[in-house]
Simulated scan of single mutants.
Amino acid sequence: MSENEGNLDSVQSYDSEIVTVGAMQKTVNPEGYGEFPIQMHEFKEEYPDRFKKLFENCGWNVKKEVIKVKKKEIIKWRAYYQDITGQDLKNKIREGFGVKTYKKKVKCIPIEPLINAAKDPYFQAKQIEDFILRLRIHVLPIIPIGYEYKIKDYLKTKLGKATALDQHINRPAYVKEDFGKALNHFYKENPSVSKNPNNWKDSHETYENEILEYYGKHRRGTHMPLRYNQLKNNSHLK
């Protein structure tokens, strides 16, 4: 599934975010928060010496912030490079990039440590662990809108799980609604099929493929029909 996002050592800074890193293209958003600072924090907790070598010694760090909302405390993690973040960091990363330097090599010192860290085998293992945890904890337990069974009850194949994970990484808030719409379409075409996917037995793969053909192409997100075709052609998901 990562082929739809990036390689393990992919790093880019060209859209609305400050920077995105890795196979899941985790972001540092315009305020300095996001999924990548969380990943940095977790890596720092697991491998403090390695974090110091790969990040701190090269100017990058992650800091904890506690925000109070009424009586509740919310913990957030924020990425910094040489003690700057937010718009200042975005500007620093993009210094020297413009129309005049288009298609030319431009040295970007703040990005280099991220590329180096993304090539580190321990950090790459962390990325793979995050894929697995996201699938197990956040994707498969989702209950589609209008139904009572979880996505894991409908999706048993590698392709099915990868398709749901693919949307969750791209547009997580839409998964339960879009998968529910796919089920609505399936049951409209197959009104006699049990609403309980655990009763599908030998027909499960056939039914799942029919659901996926609709869901994969109608999911909301960036280039979803193309992404689904790429998943279908991926030899690892056969």
Rank of each mutant, 00 (worst) to 15 (best):
E189M: 08
D15A: 12
N233S: 13
A182D: 09
N61D: 11
F51I: 05
I115P: 10
Y33Q: 10
Q39G: 04
T163C: 14
Y122I: 09
Y102I: 10
S192F: 07
K105W: 06
T157L: 08
V66P: 07
I115F: 11
K181R: 14
I75K: 11
K71N: 15
P191W: 11
Q167M: 08
N184S: 09
Y81K: 04
Y149H: 15
Y14M: 07
A118P: 12
N170Y: 02
T20Q: 14
H218W: 06
L8N: 13
T27N: 12
A162Q: 03
R94M: 06
P225E: 01
L231S: 03
N184G: 03
M24W: 01
Q167W: 00
V62K: 00
R136W: 04
V28S: 04
P121N: 06
D15P: 08
R171P: 00
A162T: 04
E95K: 13
E112V: 08
N61K: 01
D88A: 12
L159M: 12
Q82D: 13
I169H: 01
S16T: 15
E42V: 02
T206S: 12
K150L: 11
Q124S: 05
F36M: 06
Q124H: 11
N116W: 04
N91K: 15
L155N: 05
E35G: 10
E73N: 15
I67F: 07
V175S: 01
D83C: 00
V139Y: 02
H218A: 07
Y147V: 01
R78K: 15
A162F: 00
Q127V: 01
V11S: 07
Y33V: 08
N196E: 11
M224V: 09
Y81E: 02
L140F: 09
K150E: 15
H41L: 02
S203H: 10
V28R: 00
L159H: 04
R134S: 13
K100A: 12
G22E: 04
Q230T: 11
T85P: 07
T20S: 14
Y147K: 04
M224Q: 14
E45G: 04
E73H: 12
L231R: 02
K150P: 05
L140E: 12
L183Q: 00
L165G: 02
W60C: 01
I169L: 15
P30I: 03
R171Y: 08
P30G: 07
Y187R: 01
L135Q: 08
I84T: 10
R220S: 10
Q25I: 07
N61H: 00
T163F: 01
T20L: 03
D202R: 04
G86A: 10
K158F: 14
I109E: 14
V175M: 00
Y154W: 14
K232N: 10
V106H: 11
P113L: 07
P110H: 06
N61G: 04
D120V: 08
R227Q: 07
